[in-house]
Design a protein around this nucleic acid. Structure first.
Lengths: 148, 148
DNA sequence: ACAAGAACGTCTTGCCTCAGACATTCTCGG
DNA sequence: CCGAGAATGTCTGAGGCAAGACGTTCTTGT
C-alpha cells in the first residue's frame, strides 16, 4: 500500500518492549506485596546508600513530594528508616532496614530470573550487543529526569 | 570490570532508552503544539482507521475515559471528528480530518528524522537486529494493555 | 413484538502526582 | 554572636487519570 509506515517504529517497539519487561518485574514485585515503585526505591537505597531525599529523588527522576509519600509508606511497613544526619539537621537520610533488604533481595532474584528467561532466546553476543546499543542510545540523548 | 550487579539491568536500560526516545518524539510533537499522546492518537487514527472508541482505546492501552478527553480536545481543535456509525448508533467512530492528517504527517516526518539521527550510529544490520530482538521480547511477554 | 441481557459511550467521584508556598536549619560575612 | 541568604524537607491547592454508575442502543430468545 501507499503506507509511509516507516514511521518512528523503533521508538514504539522500544517503548512496548520496555513496558512489557517493566510490567514483568512489577508483577514479581507485587507478588511479594510491593508496588513497582517501592521496589525501585528500595533498590536505589541498597545500591547507592547515604543519599539525602533530594538527591535520591533527583537520581530517580521522582518528584520530592512523591518520594515523600513513598518513603512514608515504606517506613510505615518497617522497610526503611529516616535517619537524621547529625551534621546537618535539615537532612533526612533514608536507610533500608534488614527486613527491607531481605525483601529487596528476594524480589531482585525473581526479577533476574524473569529477565534471564525473557532474554533466553538470545545468544550472549546478541544480549551484549543489545546492551551496547541501549547504552549508546541513552548516551546520545539528553537527560531530562527519568520521570520514573 | 567489576560488575557483580547483574541485576535486571537490561530492563532498566530498556526503560531509560525508551524514555529518552519517547521524550525526543514528544519534543518534536510539542514543537508543533501537540502533546505526545495527541500525536499517538492521531497516528493510530491514520494507520488503522474505522475503529470505534473502545477498540481504539484497547489497542492503545488507553482508558476509555482518558481517550474521551483526548478526543474532546482534538475535536475542539478540528483535528478529528466523531462520526456516527449509521449501522449501530451506539458507536462513535473518530476520524482524522485533513488538518489533522497534515499535522500528523509533519510531526511524523520530524520524528523519523530524529530517530534516524539517534540510530545513525548503528549499521543497518545492527538496527535490524535491534528491531528483531525487540519484537522477540514483545512476543515473549503477555499483553497487559500497554498503559501508554 | 417484546423483554432480558449485553455493549458502547458518557458522566461523576476518588486517588495520585506535580507545582508552589512555608518552616526549619545551615553557611557566610560582619 | 547575630542577621541575611540559601538549602532541605514538609504541607497545601490544582489538574489528570482511572474505576464505577448511568442512559442509550443493539442482540437474542421466546
Amino acid at each position: 500500500m501507499h503506507s509511509p509506515s516507516i514511521d518512528s517504529e523503533v521508538t514504539w517497539l522500544l517503548h512496548r518492549a520496555a513496558q512489557r519487561m517493566r510490567c514483568a518485574s512489577g508483577e514479581q514485585a507485587e507478588k511479594h506485596g510491593l508496588a513497582l515503585r517501592d521496589y525501585i526505591v528500595l533498590n536505589a537505597l541498597s545500591k547507592t546508600p547515604g543519599l539525602t531525599q533530594g538527591e535520591l529523588g533527583k537520581s530517580l527522576g521522582l518528584d520530592k513530594t512523591t518520594l515523600m509519600s513513598q518513603l512514608d509508606g515504606l517506613e510505615r511497613r518497617g522497610l526503611v528508616v529516616r535517619h537524621n544526619d547529625p551534621r546537618d539537621r535539615r537532612l533526612r537520610i533514608p536507610v533500608i532496614t534488614e527486613d527491607g533488604e531481605a525483601l529487596r533481595t528476594t524480589v531482585a532474584a525473581a526479577c533476574v530470573t524473569v529477565e534471564a528467561d525473557l532474554l533466553g532466546a538470545f545468544t550472549a553476543d546478541e544480549a551484549q550487543s543489545l546492551r551496547h546499543m541501549l547504552v549508546t542510545i541513552i548516551g546520545a540523548t539528553p537527560d531530562r529526569g527519568s520521570c520514573l
